[in-house]
Design a protein around this nucleic acid. Structure first.
Length: 597
RNA sequence: GGUCUCGUAGCUCAGUUGGAUAGAGCAAUAGCCUUCUAAGCUAUGGGUCGAAGGUUCGAAUCCUUCCGGGAUCACCA
């Protein structure tokens, strides 16, 4: 049993013995002592005053006496107002540190028989334009949350549902047909997703011209939008696609393959991957059967024009369309169907959708409707709703060209990392390949950390004019600390100093060293909390705090000039443990750490 | 208009079952490399936690109202 649980149990026991009353477990609040005070753990006694019927200081003292007597690890305690600060003996912390050293997967929980199967859908791009910064947040979050859930013993299935059909896809296709002159990514020397994206933009420009022409001729704006020749042609193309017209299908396959090849490059750069990729062209017809079923059961209603709806007014929402009057399905219909399919195929205990918060309503409705249909697993749906990435001027808009392109951004980060390395002259004696690898690791580390350190739920701002920092609370700062520790360990090796397998539990250690050990102690809790909250930000912030502490230690505690050999051994051991956790934590964020930089 | 959501230092963000004097980074200023990587460390300044009420031993955190931003409420996805 861990120390905190033991403290709680003993407090319950103490209250029972001293005040002859059983306290509610919730009233026992053990927290880490704030660093301005002496101690390791603090019991807040205010909630217990009702039971003790004595002043806070007296209650705290009585409990402190009992705890010290019954838990041998407690070396002393002090009372300030209603706070009982308990100090845990140094030997406890040192033997704890040894247990970390002996553990190759500290903080991680192995998959076991009762493990949950969690399916997580993320990325889910449209194949009509390249990925932008918003997609980067989605991808990094999805990947990182998968890693975190795995670390806590879950079986995780990462899936990507590629949106490869629909009117928006036809727009790029049509524009290519009209103005492409047979160009291909090879001929253009361009990534396929960017090339196709260009045609999507081209379509929109021409479409807008047509609209303004029609408006000049006296059409209303709505009519102009509906009747512009281009949009009619695109709609016609979609009909042909649905009718499996061979010419359209051939073009569709080709252009999609260009885009997907482009995405693969970006995914690889970002280091994200999937266990299963679904294509909407295969799944878009799912769901109709469920709607039929709902109609039979009388859960849905059919209107006079033949359209099918779900009435959610009792839940305080509106009516939701499920089938159009012509019998074709909408987004919701498909999502009902794919969710159903997935639970059938994987028997998952949880299905997480990493999708922006602009779709909160959609997922609320999705869950409600599945519940109405009587599927108990609707409870297992979870919308991991993340905030938008905005520019200082506001939302990114693809049509106004204000999007931050994913590939450009990644390349820019790597270039910045390279410039900085050159400026600092740190990599001068490295081979080009090594240099390239390190610089990529740093650039991507900066980008990923920048995105992931922010609470997923929150809208975040990105200013393209200010480059992402490499100093302070950043990825490179964490990586740098790791590289420094590796340098220490290499140097120890050169000096033939072997890192001890265990430290003496009676070693002399400084306050800062003790603080570091206590920090290490909280890692497992941080991981379990971040899994519960689907929040890589909690891991990022923890790693930052750890690294900050370590750098202070590094600054104040020289190692190789220290004459006391046991201190040298201890500091190297401690450093090694810290670097292990840095690497582990960063890997959960999908960030690599370099051995030198 | 209905529903949801956010508001913490000049800027970007921590602060999670309500706990002690609200914290970091960036930016600014002043220091620290003949000593393990200065992408580092130290110090200084910077706050009506959007506002007002309420709940209680205690509120940035919970409740109400208001102010200000954002999202959403399509036979789009």
């Amino acid at each position: 049993m861990d120390i905190e649980s033991r403290l709680i149990e003993t407090v319950i026991e103490a209250v029972h013995k001293i005040y002859d009353q059983a306290p509610d477990k919730k009233t026992i609040q053990i927290q880490k002592t704030r660093k301005d005070f002496d101690g390791d753990f603090t019991l807040v006694v205010f909630p217990l005053l009702r039971i003790s019927k004595k002043p806070p200081e007296q209650t705290a003292t009585e409990l402190g006496d009992y705890l010290q007597e019954n838990i041998k690890e407690i070396s002393s305690y002090n009372v300030i107002k209603g706070f009982l600060n308990l100090s845990i003996d140094k030997s406890f912390w040192l033997s704890f540190l040894n247990s970390v050293g002996n553990n190759t997967n500290y903080g991680f929980i192995k998959e076991h028989e009762a493990s949950n199967t969690v399916m997580i859908e993320y990325s889910s791009p449209n194949t009509n334009k390249p990925l932008h910064l918003g997609h980067i947040r989605n991808n990094l979050l999805g990947y990182s949350v998968s890693q975190i859930l795995k670390s806590q013993g879950n079986k995780v299935v990462k899936v990507n549902l590629v949106n490869d059909r629909g009117i928006h896809i036809c727009k790029s296709m049509l524009a290519w047909q009209k103005w492409g002159e047979g160009i291909t990514p090879e001929k253009a020397g361009k990534k396929g997703d960017h090339l196709v994206g260009d045609f999507y933009v081209k379509f929109d420009q021409e479409y807008k011209k047509e609209i303004s022409e029609l408006i000049e001729k006296g059409s209303s704006e709505d009519d102009a939008k509906k009747n512009a020749p281009l949009i009619l042609e695109a709609q016609e193309m979609l009909r042909k696609w649905e009718a499996k017209d061979s010419e359209v299908i051939t073009l569709w396959k080709e252009m999609n393959s260009w885009v997907l090849a482009g995405f693969d490059v970006t995914y690889k750069e970002l280091g994200v991957d999937f266990d299963k990729v679904y294509f909407e062209s295969d799944t878009y017809k799912l769901g109709k059967a469920l709607v039929e079923e709902g109609l039979q059961k009388g859960i849905f209603i059919k209107k006079d024009d033949g359209s099918v709806w779900c009435d959610l007014t009792d839940e305080g929402l509106d009516q939701k369309l499920l089938l159009r009057a012509d019998g074709t399905s909408v987004y919701m219909t498909q999502d009902l169907g794919t969710a159903h399919q997935r639970f059938k195929d994987y028997d998952a205990n949880e299905l997480i959708y990493v999708v922006g918060n602009e779709q909160n309503y959609h997922f609320q409705v999705l869950k409600l409707i599945l519940g109405k249909l009587g599927y108990s697993w609707s409870e297992y749906l979870h919308h991991l709703s993340y905030g938008m990435v905005e520019l200082p001027e506001g939302k990114m808009k693809s049509r106004e060209g204000t999007v931050v392109d994913a590939d450009d951004l990644i390349a820019g980060m790597v270039t910045t990392a390279e410039e900085m390395s050159n400026e600092l002259g740190k990599l001068d004696d490295y081979s080009e390949t090594d240099k390239k690898n390190i610089v990529e690791t740093i650039g991507l580390g900066a980008l990923k950390y920048f995105i992931l350190k922010v609470d997923p739920k929150k809208t975040m701002t990105f200013d393209p004019k200010e480059s992402i920092d490499f100093n302070g609370n950043t990825g490179p700062f964490v990586q740098y600390t790791y590289a420094r520790i590796q340098a220490l360990l290499r140097k120890a090796d050169e000096k033939n100093i072997t890192i001890t397998e265990e430290v003496e539990t009676n070693s002399e250690i400084s306050a800062k060293e003790l603080q570091l050990i206590k920090f290490i102690h909280t890692y497992p809790e941080v991981l379990s909390e971040s899994a519960k909250n689907y929040s890589p930000a909690m891991v990022a912030n923890y790693v930052y705090e750890l690294v900050k502490e370590y750098n202070q230690f590094y600054h104040d505690h020289p190692i190789f000039s220290e004459s006391d050999e046991s201190k040298v051994a201890f500091r190297l051991y401690l450093s090694a443990q810290v670097s292990k956790i840095i690497k582990s934590g960063m890997s959960l964020l999908g960030i690599n750490v370099p051995d030198r930089m």
